[in-house]
Amino acid sequence: MFGLHYRLERKAIGLVLAIVGVASIGGIVEIAPLFTIHQTVEDAPDMRVYTPLELAGRNIYIREGCYACHSQMIRTLRDEVERYGPYSLAVESKYDHPMLWGSKRTGPDLARIGGKYSDEWQVAHLHNPREVVPESVMPAYGWLLRTTLRTSDLGANLEAMRAVGVPYTDEMIANAAADADGQAAPDTPAAAGVAERYGAATTIRIFDGNARELTEMDALVAYLQILGRLTDAAHKPVALGE
């Protein structure tokens, strides 16, 4: 064995090929089957895609680096299930490009934060966390209320999401900007369009308490309120794979 190596280390190309070969095996064995084994991701027929407003909110969540302190992955441990809710299923993040499972909980897990607090609480908390949780060390995101949400590029965003495999329809892409406005403007024709395209259960509200302007706060709160609620699969008894 050492004799073989004695010869190998005299050949630069041989060494390069050996390194690439040896280093490829682990990834191929562990990653490739995740795309082919059907049981890896559960079936959830009721799973819906993010609305344009929620997707914009998700992009703000990414932009501000929320994932550095908040996980979105409840592990299969008793204390986590009792603290945060049913453990996370793979299917719940199947439209998450990229996933935001996180790796650190400086703050609590957010996988099932949707519907847990009111919009007013979320807005006040994001504006200055210490107004509602005095001990909090979370940054204050004052600029979210001050910044108008850019909606003109949402159609292109949906299109890119479709290119990586999320089933957005042509109609959804064409109406993306209008749907973003509509989701924060209840009782308007635009709001009806959102319910028609994304389902009657879609939350349509003035999220930031300001009806005149669609702000980044609207988008982020809309996203937080949908977390864990794209499908009911996690709340049902587990269907074991045959």
Binding site: E30, E92, S93, D96, H97
Partner: peptide, 16 residues
């Protein structure tokens, strides 16, 4: 940009 991978496959690729 949007990552080519999503969810569990993305998580595995990311931590690989």
């Amino acid at each position: 940009s949007y990552s080519l991978f999503a969810g569990v496959q993305d998580a595995m690729t990311e931590w690989w």
